[in-house]
Design a protein around this nucleic acid. Structure first.
Lengths: 173, 173
DNA sequence: CATGAAGTAGAGTGTTCATTCTACTTGCAT
DNA sequence: ATGCAAGTAGAATGAACACTCTACTTCATG
């Protein structure tokens, strides 16, 4: 992960997050990355590769923002994850999950679908582990996905719903 | 809603559902609609209008498939809605919610966003009414959105999770 | 100090695509 | 039977865009 790779990935992620996957031309992406056409294509030899680079960068950043500094008490971990996701939505993902957006824009691209699945699986697994709810990955994914999707519609009320459902899930176990 | 309007809307919905919103050219859409270019543009004067026509058609079809013939017992209505959505996903929406896909493909289009919001609001409202859970629209949206998003990842296990969380929500009330 | 790896700027190329236009057909109502 | 409303087939147009190429600059290192 050299300096310039990081710079390019950061710019690409920002551009796609702001303008979606259909709209930005490679020229726009070059401007966002802050490099020349030649250099951009050297590190991402096609527009598809640019999308992948952006998602991989986002994955790393998401994990860092959501799962670093969680409380070690398992009963506090899930609400903390939900709060972290809410903060993420508020500051970074007004338009919803970038992985779903990417797959929606290119439903034929198998590599993208795999990236989405890996991302969601890792989020579910880490959440389950932190909350002491291993085996409940499906329920947790449902709650977190539901939160991410209903946030643009209901805002903070969606956060309350997610916490409430999370609490119910934990007490049942 | 004349014959030909319906024919065009049906074809457009199918094309977008199968190939996403980015890929199909207007030529492809014309073939899917089974009319000439001139006629297609007469009823949908731009590609954007074609997207809107497809979504409006899908909205009507979704409501019919999910909310017709629900059991009148409120405690049975929510599981029935969840089962209907599962059937819908299985047969029609392998790639996830078409409304979200459309918005993801064109995040700047305000009309599309409004269509999405109206669709989700009506689904939440009808579900709440059928299940005797008015006031719980946010929670219901979270569960149903979570189901729709995690279905491609977990299949029937997502359906079980949704029912379980729905049951917990209902018993608390 | 020169050389080559790695960068910049930006023009060129060939293709794809949304939209429009031309020319022709069909069937219904007067 | 004619004329118009509504359809078909598909070619033309002009813009946008992914990707490539040319020419030039920087700068660390042997």
């Amino acid at each position: 992960m050299t300096d310039i790779t990081e710079k390019i990935a950061t710019g690409l992620e920002k551009a796609f997050a702001e303008h979606g996957f259909a709209e930005p031309s490679v020229g726009d992406l070059r401007d966002a990355a802050g490099v020349s056409m030649r250099t951009l294509y050297k590190y991402a030899p096609s527009r598809e590769d640019m999308v992948r680079a952006a998602l991989e960068h986002r994955h790393r950043r998401y994990l860092r923002l959501v799962f670093e500094d969680l409380p070690s008490d398992p009963s506090l971990a899930l609400p903390a994850v939900i709060d972290a996701i809410a903060r993420w939505m508020e500051s970074e993902a007004a338009h919803g999950c970038l992985f779903h957006a990417a797959v929606a824009a290119a439903p034929r691209d198998e590599k993208l679908l795999q990236l989405l699945k890996d991302h969601k699986a890792e989020v579910a697994e880490r959440t389950a582990r932190a909350a002491g709810l291993t085996g409940k990955e499906t329920d947790l994914t449902l709650i977190l996905e539901g939160l991410t999707q209903s946030w643009p519609l209901y805002g903070k009320a969606a956060v309350r719903s997610a916490k409430e459902l999370g609490r119910k899930l934990a007490t049942a176990a």
